[in-house]
Design a protein around this nucleic acid. Structure first.
Length: 724
DNA sequence: ATAGGGTTAG
């Protein structure tokens, strides 16, 4: 009776009582709104007016609680409408919209002979609730009972295949689509473009796209993002330009895809001009486009621009936080990334697994073990403890922060281990020069029934080359094909590194000549680096020539060649390389070292006097130098002075950044504390031998992470065995 | 009566 009550109260203003027969659509909607916002209960009466088919439909449309639907269902039973296809289909749809998918299924199961509409309703329910296996199951059942799927069915089924990434199933569904005559239906075909692209078959996606007789902005976006997702950014951008020559106008979603492609290829200029295009089209207020712009600028190193976008947003969502945090993390602004992550938590914004991964990545870049442990604690308390992706990032982080033991304990505790996690742990051992441990883990992995992939072998080969395990590495390289893995340039450069470092320069060279693919920059780079170690000028010059033509603006190659000349005391050639660099407008990287004391990161450059405790630091440095001299340490001044890889302007070798970091560490920590230092360049020959001795003299363990690997200095020795 | 494209990432 409350319902009638409501009717009365609504109409008192008009001083008359409207009979239920007078309810037109407009009035019904107003009433329904009241009904929905209150907890009024529908009366179980038998008023004939309630038997209207469309009345129930709008009632269902405006329900906000499952309780309403339940009551409507009861009414339908009473009114004898429980077998009405139209109303019942609406009821199924609405229950699942309200998240009551099992209730919807119950309604469906009770319905005697469902038609295609109702089946679509339940298929769509599963699809919307990410229950893609059930979507497919329902589709199978539909075909089993001999019902004809329509374009709506296929829209949902294609979506389910996309999410399940099941290529075999996708092909089958594609065949059905053709058989049932939807081979040229625009929406279904657009779905197929997305489907094949997501399955990594962008070529097939393109085939479907090319056959489209009518291409909407959705079709173009599907193929552009398909290329972008599959790492073919240039093709994505080519398609975008092709689209611009048609009269299809880009909208904000398509611009997001194109921005992603520019982000992937780091094309700041093109991205900027696209930003201009965004402003011209008046889409710069579109929140998700702003997020993409932020991610783009952040990834291309324009963190200040990105931050201004971020700051403009009143309430940034998780994706915005993620774009900013990962942008900071990738551009060496790790501290800002971590600060932002902390800020996010303090503002009660819930991080998702991507936020956590980005923050962990930032910690890995800082190289601070304290920060790493804080992050690990955070994960332990969060719901991401069991997340394979998060745990893999944690393993990588600990390995990069110098604690391969902690990495191992995360690895051991992880309940679910996939190939990538095993590979990350193998990589970790490689980074620390524990090649045998990496191979042991590889054997355990096979025992556990996990099949290695291409990344596993990169880890293994790198581990072997960092540990001088030439024979094992060579054998592993030849095992690859047995697992159906075709070696890529990364693998070839590991092998060149492996052979070259160990002094097998001729073999490395022949190996390159025999490669079935065009050798990349990294392959020639490995050879040049080996030539520098073994002072082989002729071959080194050859490798450098290749590098200069393939990658003319990379400072690193010039530095390597200069170091090669310096190691052979060919000073005129060293000077010549300097001229070459000047001509190209290249400057060498500035070396710096970071040490964390009491949670605070301290960065030192060469001869850095900016630290508040600079005087004490330099006193300690002089003390150390005296002690080194006392035990007979002679610096190789001459060669290092011309080492372009190093901070060569200082005549005083003990002022190199890692030495300053060591001195600061010694005066600010208790005796016996392990020192952990991160350096942006490769370890310098001189400092390497000096720190070995220092570790013995002061009885400290000193762990230095250089650009390539870790050095654990202890008792006058280094874990790398002077092999780096 | 019902739908389709995108962003952060090991």
């Amino acid at each position: 009776m409350a319902w009638i009550f409501c009717l009365h109260s609504f109409t008192t203003k008009h001083q008359r009582v409207i009979t239920p027969f007078e309810i037109n659509t407009c009035l019904a909607l107003k009433l329904i709104k009241q009904f929905c916002s209150s907890s009024l209960v529908l009366p179980l009466d038998h008023d004939p007016c309630f038997k209207s088919h469309s009345f129930y439909a709008s009632l269902i449309d405006n329900s906000t609680h499952i309780r309403h639907l339940n009551q409507i269902h009861n009414q339908l039973i009473v009114s004898g409408l429980q077998h009405d296809r139209f109303v019942m289909t609406k009821l199924v749809t609405e229950s699942s919209n309200l998240g009551h998918i099992f209730y919807a299924r119950k309604l469906f199961d009770k319905f005697p002979i469902p038609d295609c509409f109702m089946l679509n309703a339940i298929i769509r329910s599963y699809s919307r609730n990410s229950m893609f296996r059930d979507t497919i199951e329902m589709y199978r059942w539909m075909r089993w009972v001999g019902m004809c799927p329509d374009r709506f069915t296929f829209s949902c089924v294609v979506k389910a295949c996309t999410e399940l990434l099941d290529f075999g199933l996708s092909c089958l569904v594609h065949a059905h689509i053709i058989v049932y005559g939807f081979g040229s239906h625009l929406f279904v075909q657009n779905g197929l473009v997305v489907l094949y692209a997501k399955c990594g078959r962008v070529g097939m996606a393109r085939m479907v796209f090319d056959k489209l007789y009518d291409r909407t902005i959705v079709s173009w976006t599907a193929i552009i993002s398909g290329y972008a997702q599959n790492g073919e950014a240039l093709e994505a951008l080519r398609m975008f330009n092709q689209m611009r020559s048609t009269d299809v106008k880009p909208d904000w979603i398509s611009l997001v895809s194109v921005l992603k492609a520019y982000t992937d290829v780091d094309d700041l200029e093109q991205g900027r001009s696209l930003h201009g295009c965004v402003i011209k089209t008046g889409l710069e207020e579109e929140p998700d486009l702003v997020i993409s712009l932020t991610a783009f600028y952040a990834k291309c190193g324009q963190v200040t621009v990105a931050k201004s976008f971020f700051d403009q947003m009143k309430t940034p969502n998780v994706m915005m936080w993620n774009a900013m945090i990962s942008g900071y993390a990738k551009n060496g602004h790790a501290e800002e990334a971590v600060d932002l992550f902390r800020g996010m938590i303090s503002r009660n914004v819930k991080p998702d697994s991507i936020t956590v991964r980005s923050a962990i990545l930032a910690c890995a870049q800082v190289g601070s073990l304290k920060l790493a442990q804080w992050m690990d604690d955070y994960v332990a308390k969060s719901k991401y403890r069991g997340d394979v992706f998060v745990n893999t990032t944690l393993i990588d982080m600990y390995a990069k922060c110098g604690s391969v033991e902690s990495a191992r304990s995360v690895f051991d505790c992880a309940s679910h281990k996939d190939v990538v996690m095993w590979s990350a742990m193998i990589m970790g051992y490689g980074l620390h020069g524990q090649g045998m441990e990496a191979i042991r883990l590889y054997d355990a992995m096979k025992q556990a029934g996990v099949c290695p992939n291409d990344v596993t072998f990169i880890g293994l080969l790198a581990a072997c080359s960092h540990s001088g395990l030439v024979k094992q590495g060579w054998e592993l390289f030849h095992c690859m094909r047995g697992f159906g893995i075709k070696p890529r340039n990364e693998h070839y450069s590991c092998v060149v590194d492996l052979l070259g470092r160990a002094g097998y320069l001729e073999q490395a060279f022949v190996f390159i000549l025999k490669m079935p693919i065009e050798p990349s920059v990294s392959v020639w780079g490995a050879l040049l680096s080996a030539c520098r170690i073994h002072r082989c000028v002729t071959m080194g010059e050859y490798a450098a020539e290749k590098l200069f033509s393939l990658d003319p603006y990379n400072t690193g190659h010039y530095v390597q060649l200069s170091n090669l000349y310096a190691s052979s005391r060919m000073w005129d050639r060293v000077a010549y390389v300097r001229v070459l660099m000047k001509e190209k407008g290249l400057t060498k990287y500035l070396g710096y070292s970071v040490i964390e004391i009491n949670g605070k990161l301290n960065t030192f450059y060469v001869g850095d006097m900016s630290h508040p405790r600079a005087h004490e630091i330099f006193d300690e440095l002089q003390r150390l130098e005296r002690r080194l001299k006392d035990v007979g340490f002679i610096p190789h001044t001459e060669s290092v002075l011309h080492d372009l890889n190093y901070e060569e302007k200082e005549e005083n070798l003990c002022l190199h950044s890692e030495r300053i970091a060591v001195a600061y560490g010694l005066i600010s920590t208790a005796p016996g504390t392990t020192l952990r230092i991160t350096k942006n360049l490769r370890a310098c020959v001189n400092c390497h031998s000096a720190i070995k001795l220092i570790s013995k003299l002061v009885e400290r363990e000193i762990i230095v992470r250089d650009a390539n690997r870790f050095h654990h200095f202890k008792d006058g020795l280094c874990s790398c065995g002077d092999y780096w």
